[in-house]
Amino acid sequence: MLEIKDAVISVEDTPIIKGLNLSIPAGEVHALMGPNGAGKSTLSKFIAGHEDYTLESGTISFNGEDLSDMDIHERAAAGLFLGFQYPVEIPGVANHYFLKTAINAQRKERGEEELDTAAFLKELKKEMSELKMDPQFKSRPVNVGFSGGEKKRNEILQLALLKPKMAILDESDSGLDIDALQVVAEGVNRLRNQERSFLLITHYQRLLNHIKPDVVHIFADGVIVKSGGFELAQQLEAEGYKAFA
């Protein structure tokens, strides 16, 4: 589904990612683990299409389509979702309004019919209760005054409603207590299916105890140094990043 080949990605002419190969087939969950400063967040923002990151060489495609020509919102409509490490606050814009606007913007982009309000609200209510979110979050401004855990839950809520083909979750476990972590993990596990892929970007193994990945990649200094199964994460937890440097 996501194919990255020999990608060199730079920020202001400084290469951060130096020849990355990553292939995530449909329905698989991959974990990308790396120390701080390895370029994990660069990768996620680059895949989403952030303008600060330039593809110097190599290719990136999504479902066979070349992503490099696509604008951020076009990638989103194509089914690419990025769960932010630090979800952004948008004052004055109600959460439900934002969600509905996003859903219908994507539907419009894909040439689909817009979702009507009643159907949307019904689904929103259902998903919020699945995530054990207080209904008041529906009408509060997007992420404004949310705690770290509430923000992450809100990301999962958006994931559930936007139904992307692929979700990249950037440090979704940071700032979460154990209960909130479980809720997020349950949300992801519930949304796992044959078609949908996940890329979990994380520093610790902790999240992977709750979401079992199909493949684990160790990422350091802009390249993947090793790939393997879940046991790789366990090895990493035991030996630390030094063992892979």
């Binding site: 951020i72 990025l82 004052p91 004055g92 814009v93 934002f98 606007t101 913007a105 401004p141 936007l162």
Partner: peptide
């Protein structure tokens, strides 16, 4: 960027943010 990632065009994203600013 956040709004665009969720599927909004840049101009719509700005409109949304500005409207929020004026709420």
């Amino acid at each position: 960027f956040y709004c665009q990632q969720r599927g909004l065009k840049e101009e719509d994203a700005v409109n949304l943010i500005v409207n929020g600013f004026c709420k």
